[in-house]
Structure formats: structure tokens, C-alpha cells
Write a protein that binds this DNA or RNA. Structure first.
Lengths: 125, 125
DNA sequence: CTTTGTGCAAAGGCTTTGCATGCTT
DNA sequence: AAGCATGCAAAGCCTTTGCACAAAG
């Protein structure tokens, strides 16, 4: 079982308090007194447990966020990085038909939406 | 403009002849006499030109494939890695509605389908 | 007291870059 | 001949791992 430590709490709080997906390095920079390896290990565990999710940035870096359970997708602002959870998903039919058409089975889908959020639109671009 | 070299041709041929997305390291392993840096540089250029596309593996490694132009998605076999091009896309309406609902603009979508292909199904998972 | 977590530094893996050489045009 | 491409090795990043020490239960 998981042991309660200051560092783990700090990481969890940071994740919960963020509306963006954050990287291990970013967390390490933000949280004073938490070693980089500790950040990585905790993020690893959180994703293994299913508590946190992972997004991949264009440069290959992994970013983490806590977004709650259940099937959903992400809508990310390409300007400020804010991530919104999208529960509305009508991709199953499409995925199923495509799979059938190609002779595939056991198909899962994953979709990402990227745009510009309301507040970044106001700010101008 | 691009200069014609043996190495570049070899890389292009390999990409065109593959039904999977391949990594730089894989290409370097396959193609005798092509330096790793050369593979990376050519793949970089091919994607910049829009000739090749990029997929990200779970470990963060980048894999490349040539898939032709136009909007499309990918259906990947999780067993053998074969990638099929999917032109059928009905995600625009959904993406637009989600965007509107969240106050986002300029939204682009990207979907990945992963399943098991016909021949891997026969072979037995 | 035992077990698990942390920190630091080293090591790993993928990718990029500097520089001299070779090949294309 | 001039310029771009290649090769090799070094360097860069992100991430993981080994080991001794500290903290939790």
C-alpha cells in the first residue's frame, strides 16, 4: 500500500490544482524540496493506479493531469495549454464501422481536440 | 532543393515499402551503410516537407510512415503494428459542437484507432 | 523495528549537433 | 569548383535506476 508522504501530497495537490497538463520537470521546478526522481516515481505510480493520465507533447515530453474516471477526451488550448475534459463522445459508431470495414476487431479509439480557448481568444490570438 | 543521394533513396524506399510505422533506429538497423544521424536528418526533412507523418509510441519513440496527403486517420494493429489509412472521417461535426460548447475556436482534431487486424485474429491473438 | 519513500548521482535511450570528409550538381 | 549530405562522436534531454539514508506505520 501507499505510504503518506509530504512529497506525494505536494505532487497530488499540484496536479489537482492545475488546469493544464504538467511535466515532471515542471513540477520539480515548482515544488521546492521535492527531488526529481521522486516526482517521476510518484507520477509513474499515479498513472499506474489510474489516478493520473498522460499526454504527450510534440517534443515527446510526457505531461500529466488528473481528470477523473470514465471515458472522455481532452480539449486543449494551443495557446495557454488549458485542458478541458470532454465527456461527449460519439466516436464509437464510427470506430466500429471503420474497424468492420478494415476487418479489425477489438478496436479502441482515442481523440484529441486542440483549439484556442475563450480567454485566449479575447486576449488576441 | 533536395539533393539525390543513395541514403535518402534507401530511406524513402524503406518507408514506402513498409506497412508499419518505423523508427529511426529500426531503419538504421535495417539499412546497412546508412548512418544513424543521416536517418534522423532525412526523416526530419521528410516530415517537414509533409512527405512523411509521425506517430508516437508508448515509450515516446517517434515512428514514421508515408501515408499520402489529405485528411485521414490511422488504424493500427496492436499486435503486428500494421497501419491502415482511414479516409472516412465524421469527426468534424462532433469537434465543432464540442468546441462551441466549451467556447473554443479554431479546433482541430486528431483520432487514433487501435485494434487487431484480420490476419492477427486468425493467427490467434 | 521493518518497510517503503526519498535524494542524489549515475546510467539509459532517443535525438540533435559540430566538424571534417565525400559526393552531387 | 561550390555546396549540400553524410558519418562519427560528442552532447542534450527526458526518464529510469542503484544505493544509502530518512521517514512512515
Amino acid at each position: 500500500m501507499s505510504r503518506r508522504t509530504e512529497q506525494r501530497e505536494a505532487i497530488l495537490d499540484a496536479l489537482r490544482g492545475s488546469d493544464r497538463a504538467v511535466t515532471a520537470q515542471e513540477l520539480h521546478g515548482t515544488l521546492e524540496g521535492v527531488g526529481l526522481a521522486t516526482v517521476y516515481r510518484n507520477l509513474q505510480r499515479l498513472t499506474d493506479e489510474g489516478t493520473a493520465e498522460t499526454l504527450r507533447r510534440d517534443n515527446g515530453e510526457q505531461a500529466f493531469l488528473i481528470c477523473g474516471g470514465g471515458h472522455h477526451h481532452h480539449l486543449t488550448c494551443r495557446v495557454c495549454g488549458r485542458v478541458e475534459r470532454v465527456r461527449d463522445c460519439r466516436l464509437d459508431d464510427w470506430a466500429g464501422e471503420v474497424a468492420a470495414a478494415h476487418g479489425f476487431a477489438q478496436v479502441e479509439h482515442n481523440a484529441e481536440l486542440v483549439g484556442v480557448c475563450k480567454s485566449c481568444l479575447k486576449t488576441g490570438k
